[in-house]
Design a protein around this nucleic acid. Structure first.
Lengths: 217, 217
DNA sequence: CCTACCGATCGGTAGG
DNA sequence: CCTACCGATCGGTAGG
């Protein structure tokens, strides 16, 4: 079942943050601005207002900070694969167009959390070099792809779309998002005051409309 | 007019390479393997068989080496914009399907040059951080996009495709390539013995077939 | 949470 | 094309 998960531990409304939380947030900000390798432990410490050596009382290493950052989206997004249960009923009850739009909105909702946009930026930036990040992204891609292959399969079974290859449809559907992410996070990030949501809402709607038109019976 | 440019100065068949050429090639290899920042001048020198200080007799700095590497695809690909002349005649004479396939093959032909695949890898890897590379890629994207917007515009004028928004069609058409490049060069590069061509030939054909089916009248 | 330090490595230069 | 060096910076640690 697709649902938008609420952020339970809303640490940001608390006025008193622990030093560990401050380090976590400073690291997200700096990694998103400059990348993981280009950010030094000194800079993180300065941003928090302590000395570099003190960081090691809270995190074993620079890599451990990244590790903890990457755990956030895993908890936040949850296992998309598990959401398969209920998809068939959802598709049948909503119909092609409504379902496609809902799914597009789900992708966007992941970005409403201010941490998530920064973490996606970190992922895009360091995708090439950091094995932790590579593994995370690869798994995310596999899960997304298999979800959509089965979704298109269901649609085909119920004759909501033309007969075709679900794998190709999933590739066509998801390529747009992959490309849009890379475009935004690698080329445009920081150059606009807006967010991914604001910048790409129209284009996502156009993409969904194009796909619906291309695959409807 | 779209045409496949031959590699004129085929430096690789020469048995005697200058040290400058050896440095150039060693740098391409290392940057493609590890990235620009992660490759040291020491490593380049070792790979050539000289000492680090000697590199500076041939190149002013590490940045200058990258600069020269990025000049290669500019000469190799040429200005795609200039090739606009003749596109209309080509489209009308070939028809939708043939033209779309030819264009897909052109993209692939850029990869047949062994330097080009490595240079694309360098571009993908360092896109986030290096302003030289960012500028190169952004310009490439703008040129590609405007070429395809005008191509779809021409097709529409001649009623070879359904009435729709050429800009959206260009985005849908090109997203696949952008995503495929990132996928191959960031996630799969080095893990297979094959090349981009070998790995993606089938998927490109499927993409072109999907697009043709989606936009034909 | 600090001061003070470690070895390693970086791009680049002086001078021959 | 070399040896020998430069200052800067890195992640991390000892010891309090």
């Amino acid at each position: 079942m697709i649902k938008i998960v609420e952020n339970k531990n809303d640490t940001k409304v608390k006025s008193k943050k622990t030093t560990k939380q401050k380090i976590f947030e400073a690291a997200i900000d700096l990694f998103a601005q400059k990348g993981f390798n280009a950010t030094s432990m000194r800079e993180i410490a300065e941003s928090v207002g302590i000395k570099k050596a003190s960081l090691y009382s809270h995190y074993k290493s620079k890599d451990e900070i990244l590790e903890k950052i990457l755990e956030y989206p895993i908890e936040r997004i949850g296992n998309v694969g598990e959401q398969n249960i209920g998809t068939e009923e959802l598709i049948v009850s909503m119909g092609l167009e409504k379902f496609m739009n809902l799914a597009g909105d789900l992708v966007l909702s992941w970005m409403e959390d201010p941490y998530m946009e920064k973490i996606w930026r970190i992922i895009c930036i360091e995708l090439y070099h950091n094995d932790q990040i590579k593994k995370f992204y690869s798994e995310f891609e596999v899960i997304s792809c298999s979800y959509w292959v089965s979704a298109f399969d269901i649609m085909m079974k119920h004759k909501l779309i033309k007969p075709s290859n679900p794998r190709i449809l999933a590739s066509e559907y998801l390529s747009f998002y992959g490309n849009a992410y890379m475009d935004y996070f690698l080329l445009n990030y920081g150059s606009t005051s807006g967010s991914f949501l604001q910048e790409y809402k129209d284009r996502i709607d156009q993409h969904v409309a194009f796909m619906v038109d291309a695959i409807k019976p």
